[in-house]
Amino acid sequence: MSRKNWFAWLYVTPLMLVLVPFFLVPILVVLVASVLETDGFGGLIPTFTLANYVDVLTSAQTFHLYSATLKFTTLTWLFTLVIGFLVAYFLVFHVKNQLLAISLFLICTVPFWTSNIIRMISWIPLLGKEGLVNSALLGTGLIREPIEVLLYSGIAVVIAYVHQLTIFMVVPIFNSMARIDKRVVEAAVDSGASRLDVMRLIIIPMSKSGIALGSIFVVSIVMGDFFVVKVMSGGGSASVVSAFYENVGVLQYPIAAASAVLLTVVLIVAISLILRTVNIRREITQ
């Protein structure tokens, strides 16, 4: 190997030291495990088989799990997108004072000052049958009976996700919006654009990369999560990951691995679809 090549390898070594043991090896382990047989007690038998994939792909349960997960993902994505976009828009275009903008930005991170578990537990006194929301609604006379679906339901799952993930939309959208030259907006107004036109033709297209990045965060986190679903739905709903968590619990490693590989493929497809709408590389290097 020439001297020049040695240096090239040296440059990528730190990255490789992280990527190989913590990313490449685990993926390979999962891939290998997914095509092996099990003895039913956690042991793997080194015989090649595609039965695990056949099981996963032909099971009606897989279909139900994916449709449930996709429903949560879509709803969460929609709400975080709308809320995140509006928050970022407000921070960038309406808060003139930079100090105020930074403090408001920090307020957006408040949900992260406590652990995920505490955050979810905190929803119980709020959304529960005798929680604040229900007592307020009862107090104003809007409802006669407490609404029970607020907690331990799909609604609760989506609320918890939105609460948890909106910041992942706010940050990248804020970032791409902050780079919009205010004079460009003024130039649009000068050309006779209404507020709606400015939003539709200038701000949204120019925030596209931020929207795409935020969407990737939200979609991949929701699709890879099982904890929020489990806690907030009170065990009423399941997700793709919760299913293979169960499999691992009963020592069915190969089938869990096959499910994991399937989820990875689905996520890769989803992310590449998102990336097709925007040239991230250009946006980042700009």
Partner: peptide
């Protein structure tokens, strides 16, 4: 009136043609 901005403030995501056509588009 129409304004030509300092450093031009062209719409970076639109082609030359669509930049020029912008005012007509919003009309």
């Amino acid at each position: 009136t129409a304004m030509m901005f300092q450093s031009y403030a062209l719409f970076p995501h639109l082609t030359v043609r669509d930049n020029i056509a912008f005012a007509l588009r919003v009309r």
